[in-house]
Amino acid sequence: MQRATMDLWVGLFVMAGIGALLVLALKVGNLGTYSANDSYEVTGNFENIGGLKVRAPVKSAGVVVGRVTDIQFSTETYDALVIMNIDSRYKFPKDTFASILTSGLIGEQYIGLAAGGDEATLKDGDTIMKTNSALVLEEMIGKFLFNKASEGSSSENSDKN
């Protein structure tokens, strides 16, 4: 085979390989939809994060607006510090409400942001004041059973009276 045709084929091969990498990065991966460069960092204190993990999505009205980048434990307040990067295209008021929600009954957990009415917006390094912890199923069942039991005993008492 001639050198020129061989060079042509190798060039095509390398181009196709790099094209495949681009497809993987942009179409399959999240590089096209969300990049870490133009984002701002916000911290939220949660009493209980349940099963939230790093890289979990941050959603508002169901749309992914950012990602959880780090989860730490604060020994000052004894609660969890969740650090999230939010795309700088989306500005949120200072009194935004952050809660840990679950997609579906047994799906993954994510942070849901509900915008407040404040004029000032969250900036890089700000802390979200209003947070709502994850619903822990065991605690809910425990509360439910406790309520049932106390209802039952109170109704017994009323019967006696």
Partner: peptide
């Protein structure tokens, strides 16, 4: 050189 390119093509066409 060719191994990563081939694997990228494999994954992309697999998707």
């Amino acid at each position: 050189i060719s191994m990563p390119l081939l694997a990228a093509l494999f994954s992309a066409i697999g998707v």
